[in-house]
C-alpha cells in the first residue's frame, strides 16, 4: 500500500533549486513604488502656480483644475504626503482625503463653508497652514471657499 505522509519532503534537488530561484527572484527585487504621477506646474515646462488663475465668473470652480494643483504645489512637499499620519494631499488622493479618508475628514463643509476645517487652517483660526507661514494670499483662500460653497464637488 502506498504510504501517505502529509508533510514528507520529497523534493528532488533540481526542484529545490527551481523553487529557490523563484523565491530569490521574489525577495531580491521588491520595490514599493507608485507612479508615474504627472504634475502640472512642476518640471521643466511647467508654469508657475504661485498666482491664482481667476476662475471664469459665474462658472463652477473646478476642483481638478484649480484646487488640486494648489494643494499639490503648496502642501505636499515635505508635509502632506504618504508619510504624514493624518492627511495626504497628493493629487490622486487629495479629494478623498479631504472628504472622507483624512484623519479629521471631512475637512470641508458645504453647509458651513466658513467653518470648514480646511478654511480655518488656511486663515490661521486653527494652527496656521502652511505651518510656519506665510499664509496663502486671501484670494487663493477665497477660491477654496468658493469651491466649498459650490458643493465641494470632485469636478
Amino acid at each position: 500500500m502506498k504510504k501517505l505522509t502529509i508533510v514528507r519532503l520529497t523534493v528532488s534537488p533540481l526542484a529545490a533549486c527551481g523553487a529557490a530561484a523563484l523565491l530569490i527572484t521574489g525577495l531580491t527585487s521588491c520595490e514599493k513604488d507608485q507612479g508615474p504621477l504627472i504634475l502640472e506646474g512642476h518640471g521643466d515646462h511647467g508654469h508657475s502656480c504661485d498666482t491664482v488663475v481667476d476662475p471664469p465668473a459665474g462658472d463652477t470652480l473646478s476642483y481638478n483644475n484649480f484646487i488640486k494643483p494648489m494643494l499639490a504645489k503648496g502642501c505636499v512637499q515635505g508635509c502632506h504626503n504618504p508619510s504624514h499620519p493624518k492627511l495626504d494631499l497628493r493629487p490622486p488622493v487629495s479629494y478623498n482625503q479631504l472628504l472622507t479618508d483624512g484623519y479629521h475628514a471631512p475637512y470641508v463643509d458645504p453647509a458651513n463653508p466658513e467653518s470648514s476645517l480646511l478654511i480655518r487652517h488656511l486663515r490661521g483660526e486653527e494652527l496656521l497652514m502652511p505651518q510656519g507661514g506665510p499664509a496663502w494670499p486671501s484670494e487663493k483662500i477665497d477660491s477654496v471657499l468658493l469651491w466649498i460653497r459650490q458643493g465641494a464637488l470632485n469636478n
Binding site: L37, V76, S83
Partner: peptide, 17 residues
C-alpha cells in the same frame, strides 16, 4: 519631464524592478 513618484517629489523614472 513633469512625472513624479507617488511622493510627488522624486522625479519618476522606470527601472527593471
Amino acid at each position: 519631464p513633469n512625472a513624479y513618484f507617488g511622493d510627488s517629489v522624486t522625479p519618476f523614472r522606470y527601472k527593471f524592478a
